[in-house]
Computed example of a mutant assay.
Amino acid sequence: MIPRPPHAGIIAALDTGSPQRAEALAEALAPHVGCLKLGLEYFVANGPAAIARIAARAPIFLDLKFHDIPNTVAGAVRSACALRPAMLTIHAAGGPAMVEAARRAAEEAGPDRPAILAVTVLTSTDAATLASTGISGGPAQQVLRLARLALDAGADGLVCSPREVPMIRAAHGAGPLLVVPGIRPAGSAADDQSRIATPEETADAGADWLVIGRPITAAPDPAAAAAAIAGSLRR
């Protein structure tokens, strides 16, 4: 698995369907970040071979958010491990049997297996959205519920918003790997995120990896933007 960084590391989210755009960003950003995130848009548009080309430049966070019956998710994890991602996401809401099946399948890949990260509540989700699906109590309560479920079932870490990092650390200590999207440098637009914080705030709260997309990739100079954020985290 990818080692825990000495200070909060940056995962640059290459949220594009274009292989040319993704490869250009990967080339520019690899010296300044610890990992590159590729998700559903890129994978569906381009397939495994295109993932492998990006993986040649930097460790990959393969963010496909598997959520299905345990046997199907286990098979998907085995297939994904062939791409040698550093991190791989599943949905905690799939339940403990699914999380355990994902972890067992990943372990078949040996010591270089990916970290299995359980997504708790998406950073675009607010209390009203949860209520519309029949879940009461708001995002924080649901995150804590799903965090315990996933960690007890064998997940290596969690994906949560910046707002939930302190409460997860209080409940589960330093052990779980916390990967945190919804990062917006001061003055940046929130875009479609509803639970956000700055890189410095999130690092100070105890996050291990910060997932940053548009503030880097939409900047006039993505490499300079990534370097500036990385520098702010080392101070």
Rank of each mutant, 00 (worst) to 15 (best):
151 L>I: 00
23 E>D: 11
154 G>M: 08
204 D>P: 00
26 A>T: 07
48 P>G: 00
112 D>P: 00
141 Q>N: 00
28 A>P: 06
134 G>M: 02
89 T>P: 06
180 V>T: 15
83 L>K: 03
142 Q>A: 13
149 L>C: 01
52 A>S: 14
193 Q>S: 09
216 I>L: 05
182 G>E: 04
39 G>L: 09
112 D>F: 01
136 S>V: 07
91 H>A: 11
201 E>N: 13
222 P>A: 15
102 A>T: 07
184 R>A: 05
30 A>P: 15
88 L>I: 02
40 L>H: 09
163 R>A: 15
190 A>W: 02
148 R>A: 00
209 W>S: 10
208 D>W: 10
7 H>W: 01
197 A>D: 14
9 G>V: 06
74 A>L: 09
87 M>E: 03
91 H>N: 08
52 A>W: 11
104 R>F: 06
2 I>W: 15
35 C>Y: 12
166 P>D: 04
11 I>Y: 07
20 Q>L: 12
48 P>T: 04
103 R>M: 10
55 A>M: 09
98 M>I: 10
33 V>I: 14
57 R>V: 09
14 L>R: 05
193 Q>T: 04
229 I>F: 05
155 A>L: 01
132 S>K: 12
64 L>R: 05
202 T>M: 14
185 P>S: 08
159 V>Q: 02
27 E>H: 13
107 E>F: 11
152 D>C: 08
177 L>Q: 09
155 A>D: 03
165 V>N: 02
173 G>F: 13
130 L>I: 03
98 M>K: 06
230 A>R: 15
230 A>L: 06
139 P>R: 13
61 F>L: 15
51 I>H: 02
151 L>P: 01
215 P>D: 08
16 T>D: 01
30 A>Y: 04
140 A>L: 14
234 R>P: 05
26 A>R: 11
94 G>F: 11
125 T>I: 13
230 A>F: 03
154 G>L: 09
22 A>Q: 06
167 M>P: 00
95 G>K: 14
201 E>D: 15
105 A>M: 09
35 C>L: 15
115 A>F: 13
186 A>H: 13
138 G>M: 09
84 R>T: 10
86 A>P: 11
164 E>W: 03
216 I>M: 02
31 P>V: 13
29 L>F: 14
47 G>S: 03
46 N>I: 08
66 F>Q: 02
222 P>D: 09
78 R>W: 04
178 L>S: 07
3 P>L: 09
30 A>D: 07
17 G>R: 14
76 A>D: 04
188 S>H: 06
108 E>F: 03
136 S>K: 02
17 G>M: 10
198 T>V: 06
172 H>E: 14
103 R>H: 08
105 A>E: 07
77 V>L: 10
167 M>Y: 01
128 A>G: 12
123 T>S: 12
212 I>M: 06
111 P>G: 11
111 P>F: 06
82 A>H: 09
17 G>C: 09
1 M>G: 15
169 R>V: 02
91 H>T: 01
119 V>T: 04
183 I>C: 08
169 R>L: 07
132 S>R: 13
42 Y>G: 11
11 I>K: 07
159 V>D: 02
114 P>C: 08
66 F>V: 00
166 P>E: 03
32 H>C: 05
146 L>T: 05
